[in-house]
């Protein structure tokens, strides 16, 4: 039988929505018993949220002052200790999970499958390679412990149940390493929905032509209650900050509505949005590859389209 441990990502006392998606992924393995591990200096609210996710049988908390800031070098040795006896150890394919899980895999001497997008059985998974231009089906020898990161854009979140799973504390005597220290984090502004989890995303490309022009997208996004993203070209040109980059080397997202303005649609960008429910493309160039994947395409100048769209939104509230 499969026994799956999922490591919780959280911040400011809130569980990252990616974890419910990891649970959904894990629950696709027949008869899996799913546990969640929470590493924190103050785990109670996060553990309570995790315990309510439908399909979770148990939550394990590890309390340590060093876990006030998630550092892979602190979490990995304890997670590897807890993970003994589990057939699978999952984390989200976010920068948190990408940083942490390989360190755990190495400590467990287990192979890792990164970015799993589909479950074909307890030992068989599908994952993207070559920036999503190919999909490989991988199989681990039965009986081998497997570490994996879950491509959250590929899974709906598991429901929140009415009942709570039991929460247990785990304790460790071994000292944590002191060779890695948190200094600071400069968070992106948070009065707008989070790009990774937003239902609607408005995204701009190089055609915006300046950081100042990006303001028209922020305005439109605020009107729509949307998050704002950018293409790699726009980020490289300095029109938008790094954490707004959507695509294979940036964020992989799956909103219900993704609207692009002046994005041509390079393969690496399309890889980041191909699970979006509805894609809208506005571009001056009728030959832009983005139109090949868009559900609705409009050939036009974004500097005319954006104000017009905003006016229609305002008058049709």
């Amino acid at each position: 039988m499969s026994k799956i441990l999922i490591v919780a990502e959280h911040r400011d006392g809130k569980l990252n929505p990616a974890i419910a998606k990891c649970v959904h992924c894990a629950s696709q393995i027949n008869g899996a018993e799913i546990h969640i591990a929470v590493f924190s200096n103050e785990p109670s609210s996060v553990a309570a949220d995790a315990a309510r996710i439908s399909g979770v049988a148990k939550v394990v908390t590890v309390i340590h002052p060093a876990h006030a800031h998630a550092l892979a070098s602190n979490i990995a040795p304890q997670l590897a200790e807890i993970a003994k006896g589990y057939s699978h150890v999952f984390g989200p394919s976010t920068t948190f999970g990408k940083d942490l899980m390989p360190r755990v895999a190495a400590l467990l001497d287990a192979p890792q499958a990164s970015d799993i997008m589909a479950v074909e059985g307890a030992t068989r998974f599908r994952r993207p390679i070559y920036a999503g231009n190919a999909i490989v089906t991988v199989e681990v020898v039965a009986g081998t412990q497997l570490v994996a990161t879950v491509r959250t854009a590929s899974f709906e979140p598991a429901a929140v149940g009415a009942t709570s799973a039991p929460i247990e504390d785990a304790t460790f005597s071994a000292a944590l390493p002191t060779h890695t220290r948190f200094v600071s984090i400069s968070a992106a502004r948070n009065d707008r929905p989070d790009l990774q989890t937003a239902k609607k995303v408005v995204s701009g490309g190089r055609a915006l032509a300046s950081a100042d022009n990006f303001k028209i997208l922020y305005q439109l996004a605020d009107r729509m209650g949307a998050a704002v993203g950018a293409s790699r070209a726009a980020v490289d040109a300095g029109y938008a900050p790094n954490d707004m980059q959507v695509g294979q080397t940036g964020k992989i997202i799956a909103p219900e509505l993704y609207m692009t303005f002046g994005i041509s649609g390079a393969v690496q960008h399309l890889t980041g949005i191909k699970d979006a429910r509805t894609i809208v493309a506005i571009n001056k160039d009728p030959e832009a590859p983005i139109f090949e994947v868009a559900d609705f395409g409009l050939v036009g100048d974004l500097f005319q389209v954006v104000p017009e769209l905003e006016k229609l939104l305002a008058s049709n509230g």
Binding site: Q112, A134, V136, V138, F296, G297
Partner: peptide
């Protein structure tokens, strides 16, 4: 080899949608 590649497939493609003529 602990994680065997069983097969490699091309990604599933999104189908092209419709072009609209204007903002409204």
């Amino acid at each position: 080899e602990r994680l065997k590649a069983v097969k490699v497939d091309p990604p599933s493609m999104r189908s092209k949608g419709v072009m609209v003529k204007d903002v409204s």
